[in-house]
Amino acid sequence: MTERVLVSENAIKIIDQLRVEHGELMFHQSGGCCDGSSPMCFPKGELMLNETDVWLGSIHGCDFFMSKDQFNYWQHTQLTVDVTKGRGSSFSLEIPMGIRFVIKSRMFTDQEREQLSPVHLGSEEV
């Protein structure tokens, strides 16, 4: 099964630090607000999801969502959550640390597309 979203070792270290302070976490790929299209990290359940949010999978024990419209654009790419220095302008938990989560992406190969992990829209598999 080809995973749709991955996480870098550097991002794992930050997630671990944030989890100590905030407990369980979740990610949502923003759709143009604040930092543009940055992945944002929240305490699990803090961001209200609705039927237009797509669950792409889990990274280091954290559910990863994005809006359906955003997914329609990104569905052909594998996303990797990473970190970079610099203060972003979002509400994501890592911002006070002087870093921000970023997305790196690459197109799926034909073979990978045939083995993609399913996504869920609300309670439906897409």
Rank of each mutant, 00 (worst) to 15 (best):
S92I: 12
R19E: 00
Q29V: 03
D35E: 04
P39F: 04
P96K: 09
F64Y: 09
L56E: 13
F101R: 12
M97C: 13
C62E: 11
G23P: 05
T52R: 13
S30V: 06
S89M: 01
I103Q: 11
H28L: 06
K13E: 12
V7W: 00
E94V: 03
M97L: 15
P96V: 06
R19M: 00
K44E: 15
V81C: 13
L56Y: 13
L18S: 07
E51F: 08
L25S: 02
Q70Y: 08
F91D: 14
S8A: 10
I12G: 10
P96Q: 10
T77C: 14
T80N: 04
C41K: 05
S67I: 13
P96I: 07
Y73W: 14
W55S: 11
Q70E: 12
E24P: 00
D53E: 14
F108Q: 09
R106M: 00
I15P: 04
S90V: 04
M97A: 13
S8E: 09
S30H: 07
K104Y: 03
G61M: 10
Y73P: 05
F71A: 11
I103L: 14
M26A: 06
I95N: 02
N10D: 15
L25E: 02
A11N: 04
F64S: 01
Q17C: 06
R19K: 01
K104H: 05
T84V: 12
E24K: 08
E24R: 06
I15Y: 11
C33V: 08
I99F: 10
T109S: 07
V81K: 07
S38C: 14
I59Y: 07
M97I: 10
E46P: 02
I14T: 05
V83R: 04
D69G: 15
C33N: 08
L93W: 05
V102D: 11
V7E: 00
F108A: 07
S89N: 01
D63F: 11
N72F: 06
I99Y: 12
H60R: 04
I12Q: 15
K104F: 03
T77P: 03
T84M: 07
V7S: 00
P96M: 09
K85R: 11
D53C: 12
K104V: 04
F64L: 01
Q70L: 10
G36I: 04
G86D: 07
K44P: 03
M66N: 09
S90L: 03
Q78M: 11
N50F: 15
E9C: 04
C33R: 07
H28Y: 06
F64D: 02
L25A: 02
Q29M: 05
V20P: 01
L18H: 07
E51N: 10
R106Q: 01
V7L: 03
Q78I: 12
Q78E: 13
F27E: 05
F65T: 10
G23K: 09
R106S: 01
C62Y: 10
S58M: 15
H22W: 01
G86Q: 11
E24N: 04
G32K: 14
H22T: 00
C33L: 02
F101G: 11
V7Q: 01
Q78L: 08
L18E: 06
R106C: 01
I14V: 08
T84S: 08
K68P: 12
Q29C: 06
S8W: 07
I14M: 05
M107A: 15
F64M: 02
V20Q: 03
W55E: 11
M97T: 12
